[in-house]
């Protein structure tokens, strides 16, 4: 069964239509990249899937493990196993990483029918997962994202992904603002978390991230629609020819 199935999804913000009929299916264990120019609707798709309320779904459906999730609250979607790595992670002053993770991990565990983690087990998990994704363990003693560098914030998202063990991870331009070393570190973290029972949707503007996180499928989004899909070689072709090439192609087809 498909992990995620999006059918004819139309979404608007303040009466302006951003997504104009998105169709996309991701099977479990697969990594799909969504590429596209600025303003094409990539990040809107990510936020709609996570349940951000400013976005109005006008038409279409989103099935997660065969169930329509569009009526679910954001926290219910998180509990079902949808994780969004934010493009701009939020700082929570005074909220310790430990406290935040305790609440978050145990909510998700409860939803999966698992016992909550005690303090010692949680600390051990934090240590293990921080090491796995290369997050400086000192950061886990601070307030959430407060005073973190851009790269540390992004790595902290991957760390939380590792802690929450979602079924679907959506990476919203995780590569933006990263230098090449930070990019590789983040990609390494993601690659370690790719498993047969997890799907990834990697949203990016640039092909370079996909040199490190090699996708099974690449989709190109332009003006709120997926206009072309292909294998990983499509990303390379795009880098060579630019988005105008696909745009013209799509115009001819329409």
């Amino acid at each position: 069964m498909a992990l995620l199935e999006i059918n004819d999804l139309h979404v608007s913000v303040e009466d302006s239509e951003i997504l104009r009929g998105v169709d996309l299916t991701i099977d479990t264990g697969q990594t799909h990249a969504i590429m596209g120019p600025n303003g094409s609707g990539k990040s809107t798709l990510a936020k709609v899937l996570a349940g951000r309320e400013e976005y109005e779904v006008d038409r279409g459906s989103v099935l997660f493990e065969g169930e329509d999730i569009l009526g679910d609250e954001p926290d219910e979607r998180a509990e079902k196993g949808i994780f969004l790595a934010f493009q701009y992670p939020v700082e929570l002053p005074g909220v310790s990483m430990n406290n935040f993770l305790k609440e978050s991990v145990n909510k998700v565990r409860e939803a999966r029918g698992e016992e909550p983690l005690g303090a010692a087990d949680l600390l051990q998990q934090i240590r293990e997962k921080a090491e796995l994704v290369g997050l400086n363990a000192d950061l886990t003693k601070r307030s959430v994202n407060e005073g973190f560098s851009g790269g540390e914030k992004k790595r902290n998202e991957i760390f939380q992904l590792a802690m929450l063990e979602p079924k679907l991870a959506i990476m919203d331009e995780t590569d933006s603002g990263l230098d090449i070393d930070a990019l590789r570190a983040v990609a390494d973290g993601v690659n370690k978390l790719r498993t047969d029972d997890r799907g990834f949707m990697v949203i990016t503007h640039y092909q370079r991230l996909l040199n490190y996180i090699v996708p099974d499928r690449v989709h190109v989004m332009i003006d709120g629609r997926i206009v072309r899909s292909g294998g990983k070689e499509l990303a390379v072709e795009l880098e060579d020819k630019g988005y105008e090439w696909v745009r013209e192609d799509a115009a001819v087809a329409a």
């Binding site: 996570a50 349940g51 951000r52 609250e73 954001p74 926290d75 998180a78 509990e79 994780f83 969004l84 934010f86 992670p89 939020v90 929570l92 002053p93 005074g94 909220v95 310790s96 406290n99 935040f100 609440e103 978050s104 909510k107 998700v108 939803a111 307030s143 939380q160 929450l164």
Partner: peptide
């Protein structure tokens, strides 16, 4: 929304944020 996305409900998220703010 960040808290919701990590599985926290409205009351839990508010408590965490307000507590954090006050702690400072």
């Amino acid at each position: 929304f960040y808290c919701f996305q990590r599985g926290l409900g409205e009351e839990e998220a508010l408590k965490l944020i307000v507590n954090g703010f006050c702690k400072e």
